[in-house]
């Protein structure tokens, strides 16, 4: 077990390393005399926050697409995996189709989604969802099937119901797998939402990037990228916290 001091030390290191990356960035631009329109300094980048770019509302819109697509994927992915674990026929019939469909570059579907679902946050959520739900489905399905057959024998000898097996053994056993799928999915959800905003949107950080690109405001573009990253980091942290809360240390899949 890690003691309190070690834990605090580790957190300090995390903060210091993040600040160090920003410091190296600043030094590189200053000492290397890089032109501002190629690459702004971190200070110049943060300064754009005070300009009138509607940062707050644009960030909220992007966060809504990312979070919406992500949590939709978690719900659909886990439910489908459950269905597949109950019926071998469903699994054999649909899993290969889903894997094939997953090979479609979702980015290429963007324009079609716009035709189907029109402008706005809806299609962006769907693009984010479609790009990130498969890892959740696959890891959950694997986790649900990972149960020792002898353990099932043990409870079936006591006439355990399918629901008891699911709630007491399968689902808690699959949680570590679900979380490892969710961590992969966070990255994909962010990418999916931004692609949606690139293709067709009138709000959001992706849309804003295209706007400021025209005026070659590199600093604002970098700020947008930082905020997109920040949205992803917040979601990732949320997933980690949930994992810490729900999964016993030794059962975690690293």
């Amino acid at each position: 077990m890690e003691n309190r001091r070690e834990r605090i030390g580790r957190w300090v290191l995390v903060v210091v390393m993040h600040l160090a990356v920003i410091a190296v960035w600043q030094l590189w631009i200053t000492l290397g005399e890089v032109e501002a329109y190629i690459m702004p300094t971190p200070l110049a980048t943060f300064a754009t926050l005070f300009e009138d770019y509607n940062w707050w509302s644009n960030t909220l819109v992007t966060a809504a697409s990312v979070f919406g697509g992500f949590w939709l994927a978690v719900v659909v992915g886990v439910l489908l995996a459950l269905l597949f674990s109950w019926s071998k026929w469903l699994n054999d019939a649909f899993m290969p189709v889903i894997v094939s469909l997953n090979m479609i570059p979702k980015v290429a579907l963007g324009p079609i989604f716009i035709v189907w679902f029109s402008y706005g946050i809806g299609p962006n959520i769907i693009i984010a969802f479609s790009i990130c739900f498969l890892p959740i489905l696959i890891t959950t399905a694997r986790g649900l099937n990972e149960v020792e057959p002898e353990l099932i024998d043990l409870v079936r000898a006591l006439k355990a119901s399918r629901w008891q097996v699911f709630t007491k053994i399968q689902l808690p056993g699959a949680l570590p797998y679900i979380f490892s799928g969710m961590k992969v999915a966070v990255v994909l959800a962010v990418a999916g939402a931004i692609v949606g905003e690139f293709i067709a949107s009138e709000k959001g950080l992706g849309y804003l990037m295209l706007q400021v690109q025209v005026t070659l405001d590199t600093a604002a573009m970098f700020m947008a990228v930082l905020l997109i990253t920040f949205v992803g980091v917040v979601l990732y942290a949320l997933v980690l916290m949930l994992e810490l809360l729900l999964v016993v240390r030794d059962a975690r899949v690293e």
């Binding site: 043990l154 056993g173 059962a251």
Partner: peptide, 26 residues
């Protein structure tokens, strides 16, 4: 029926007492 196997098959996320209680819950 009570069963014991080669592997203990304890549920990793349950404390020992809660593992022992599994059959009574079922």
């Amino acid at each position: 029926i009570g069963m014991v196997f080669q592997q203990s098959l304890l549920l990793k996320w349950r404390r020992i007492i809660d593992n022992v209680l599994l059959p009574t819950e079922i």
